[in-house]
Design a protein around this nucleic acid. Structure first.
Lengths: 202, 202
DNA sequence: GTCTATACTCTGATAGAC
DNA sequence: GTCTATCAGAGTATAGAC
């Protein structure tokens, strides 16, 4: 998977990533990608067949950088509470390193849902393992009775939302960029605490 | 605000809303909007000056249909717990009626953040009132100690995420359209319960 | 107010030299 | 592999008849 790709090819991919993520598929311009990569427009077509295929490469990479990690943690064989902590920690760190990926994926998924349905299935995240784990812990009196599907959506929502909707949220909270970065870091602790408190037996 | 607008103008706005929300600004085509409205392309320019201004009208309407409600509830003078229930209920219902608005707003806000910064300020949601309310309830021993900024992000994230990321979430949970609709309705109860449990004194 | 026809710009893609 | 030059199509916008 690594560096069978030529130097120029990587340059193009990186430039394309920047532009596509910033502007979306429809808003991106091949010329801008070429400029960003410091090469000529024709080279884009030489390495990739066209805009569609270049985008496809970028999108696949974006998805590949996120879904497998969710999958691994969710399906790991560790206790439920431990899993939550690990998930939030690693996931928010991943988001801090790639803050624009989720909005990008969601945006393109919404404008063209069918294009990638099959791709998503390849990463087939199976939440059943987590659901079973929750049922077990409920039965054993470890946690209060909760539903797995709603729980996972709550968890994902709390982790992802401040990244996806950053402009709105940051504006609403009247935070500077530095303050918001700090805020995002804090969320690891805060989300875990919020969840732990909620699943505890009352 | 109502029906000073001509019939055709409303027809155009409604068509533009559909197309812009579905395709985004860059992906939308004036021709498609004209077709959707059942009129000619030139009429779009007659009523609105061009694509930019037509989009502006649609976007403003989309924002206007959501932010004021958040503001009203957040700033209302009712007890904290009551406010949460009311917020989740009314907000999720609003989302059920307009499920594509949030992703649309976020998408355009991300691709062109500067364009609407001032517009958002007009709706200036002031979360300070809620923060003060939380501090008061904490002091009075009504709820455990929580931070207002993280709390509001948690709440918004849990409400909005299943709408914004519907394709991914629905696929992950392997739900049919009908099942997912039901799931979204259920969230009103589930989110409230999740939050209430979390803010309770332990 | 609404239509047809058209001008003009932008952009993705290709041809062909080096 | 990389560049310059250019084509063909799409898309916004406008002119002008009715």
């Amino acid at each position: 998977m690594t560096s069978i790709l030529s130097n120029t090819e990587l340059l193009i991919l990186e430039a394309a990533r920047k532009v596509f993520i910033h502007k979306g598929f429809a808003g991106a311009r091949m010329q801008e990608i070429a400029d960003e990569a410091g090469i000529n427009k024709a080279l884009l077509h030489y390495y990739f067949r066209g805009k569609d295929q270049l985008f496809e490469a970028v999108f696949a990479q974006a998805v590949a950088s996120f879904l497998p990690m969710i999958k691994d943690v969710l399906e790991a064989e560790i206790p439920f509470r431990e899993k939550i902590v690990k998930f939030v920690d690693t996931y928010v760190d991943l988001l801090l390193a790639n803050p624009h990926i989720p909005a990008f994926v969601i945006q393109e998924l919404n404008t063209d849902p069918l294009r990638f349905v099959d791709k998503l299935k390849n990463y087939g995240i199976n939440p059943e393992i987590l659901f079973e784990q929750i049922k077990m812990d409920v039965k054993n009196g470890q946690i209060r009775e909760i539903r797995g599907d709603h729980f996972i959506v709550n968890l994902l929502g709390m982790c992802l939302f401040p990244f996806i909707a950053r402009p709105v949220v940051q504006g609403m909270l009247r935070k500077s960029n530095e303050q918001y970065e700090l805020f995002l870091h804090e969320r690891k602790k805060e989300v875990v605490q919020f969840v732990m408190q909620s699943i505890a037996l009352s």
